[in-house]
Design a protein around this nucleic acid. Sequence first.
DNA 1: TTCAGCTTT
DNA 2: TCCCAAAGCTGAA
Length: 858
Amino acid sequence: MDQPEEKEIAPSNEGFQYRMGLNDNKAGMEGLDKEKINKIIMEATKGSKFYDNELKKDQQVNQRIEKMLQQKSQLTSSQLKMAQVQVEKMTLELERSRDLSRFIVHVDMDAFYAAVEMRDNPELKDKPMAVGSMSMLSTSNYVARRFGVRAAMPGFIAKKLCPNLQIVPANFDKYRAVSKEIREIFSEYDPNFLPLSLDEAYLDITDHLEERLTRPEDRRTFTVKNGHAENGDPPAEVKAKCEPEETCTSPVLFEDSPTFLPDQCHDFSRQDLKCENQERPQENVFVFGTSAEEAVREMRFRIEQKTTLTASAGIAPNMMLAKVCSDKNKPNGQYIILHERQAVMDFIKDLPIRKVPGIGKVTEKMLRALGITTCTDLYQQRALLSLLFSDTSWHNFLHISLGLGSTRIERDGERKSMSTERTFSEISSAEEQYELCRELCKDLAEDLSKEGLKGRTVTLKLKNVKFEVKTRASTVSYAVSTEEEIFSVAKDILKAEIDVASPEPLRLRLMGVRISGFLCEDDKKHQKSITSFLGSNKAVKTMCSGTVDPKATQNPAPQRESFFNQKRAARLQGLEQGSTSNAVTSKEQNVAHPSSEPQQDFTEVDQICQDPDFTCPICMMKKSDWNLEAFNRHIDQCLSKSPTSGNGEILSKCEDVFENCSDKAKKSNKGVGKDVRIKNLKNKMVTLAPSDDMDDFVIDNNTMHTLHDQRVKSDSCRDKIICENSMENPQVEGDVGGNNTDVSKPASSLCSATCSEGAVFICPVCNIQQDTSDLAVFNRHVDVCLNNGILEELKGQNTNLDPKHPVRNDPQNGMAVRGNAGNKSNARSKRPGAAQQNPASKKAKTQRSSLTIDAFFK
DNA sequence: TTCAGCTTT
DNA sequence: TCCCAAAGCTGAA
């Protein structure tokens, strides 16, 4: 981004000032000197509410520093010694793991937005200009920077610094288009490059360099016509000779920036530039070498030719160093740290900590208070830091001080939150605030929909006219994504804040809405399966509003190319090819989709159908040649080998499921354990999963097979109720279960201990209610039934059964289910925690024992 | 785990 | 006219 280059406001004890950047030493030439700049800024800001707030924040940092220094003064020498030992140990470990094998590049476009605007309007080229508005500037060109005009500075102050400043409104569509061009080039050097923003990216060019060694020269040769290549690279075979310095008219956007030609580049080998064709002065040919510097230079060259914009780059063994390097020769330059430990340490030695990504103004100030300003200081004080900062922080400091950073560019980071916020002139009317809130929710819902995300936590951010920022969050038990859903949560938060401020109005200048706590993939599948099987004839109702959002069910948010969609495609293909093994019978389709409409949504059922995963839940072994029988046999063996660990694990999963039920019940504030049915088969497991009416939990087939029986035995196991309870029969509620948290015990023993009189025991095999309240007796009955082979018989009745994909038609929820043995992920995906609830659905259930989920495991 | 505030870019 | 937006992290409860 532009911002890292042009640092923002840095408050200090004396107030605050805009931080001076790299070219500050040049400020005096045509612009203003530092002192004058600060004076103007101070005059423009002093006394404003913003300024007051900055001072307040600054005071808070000072207090933190004071507290830290006090802590420091209380440290004993033995504490320090111990810390020293600890950090030494860690230092050694880190040193051992140092990886110098990668070539990581950080590329950053120079004053990107400003450069684009100057390119498109050459009149701006020699004038001080900035992109943004009177309220805020995104970036400025290098002429303006001499006057102290920087990113994150309000335009009106910039105008005071530089009255001739031209402020151009940002045009993000244009920047995105240019960014696309740049990224096309990046991808040729690293197809998995990591974009950080429109103008900045990390690349790992290690593989490219390996390939580059064998790349013929013509593929490293680029021609410039009249100083500018037309969009794209010229044919490699076109070769011409010239003197590059004379004819390469690099689009110099900044007076003080060098041309492309890399005199300023570290370790540049001029021999790599060949100028061979004097007869064709209109065409210049550049041949780039095979080294890392050459590859990066070539990349920058191509960017410049394609966009007429310049980029700076850093090459280093890790991301942290590469980022620092890219700043070293900015603008339009590059820098490499050789891949040797000593080179890294030399580079780090005098590096000011503030240059390191992740160390901002507050951290800098805190470290400065400890006398730490360079990375060497950081290294020397590492023991002290380990005592004063959190683990995360001092580990980070230690990494920095050793010049270590991430050596793999991974797009691991699944997004953790998404938000939108808006600044406006004061809004004090509640009505307008609600309206705005709804608008923000709408925007956010659209953004979420683009990425197919749903989250459980809604955060409202409010900034009042005094610039005081408040965030208020609320986590709900279901994932929200639509405007209605988000608003129903956000408006309650807003209401609470309005109430708190009452009778004074809430005087806001900013409002933001954020969603976090996104469903993990498994949860998504789970939620999807729930909504889809309900979707055909039931609207998914949300707890918050009690209203139905038709969009939520009729037009589900577009998902990223999911596992399901892939499977769907595969399945459709399979069907087309006449494959019958995985085909869903028409009966199932009718059951699952009563409307007989084409199947629009694919549920976990699809996964089960398509992907029988015979991974043993005990030992996690997986064999491709296992069939159901062999798999079951294996599990039996596993269980008999290590009954404790096996059951322990199973039971802990079981507990997990219970916990979720319990949480759900707690959050619904409607009491726990209502309408919970518990299944127990063969004394091994008890588990729960959401049933069709969402108020109601029954054992889920898959979970049961995975966690409970550990075997795929039968289609008819489902829905046989061992032990049920109901809100309507609360006489035992609360006093069952006691404090039994021993999950190592078979669940049946827990159940025996906790089921109270009145439990209904229906054998899952013969489906006959048993005249007993003793679980052990009941379980024995089930075992007998099982041993009688009734299940096998039942299974045999289903003529559509693929031995690998037994199909169960669930009469209760209308869901066709194909069983597989299940695995960890399946089990997780069945967690009821993400289930949507329908509080309106309260079936009257009578004469059931009351067994609370909470009580069950607590 | 949740939430509010902080930090960074 | 007049001082951002978005995301991740931390620490306390």
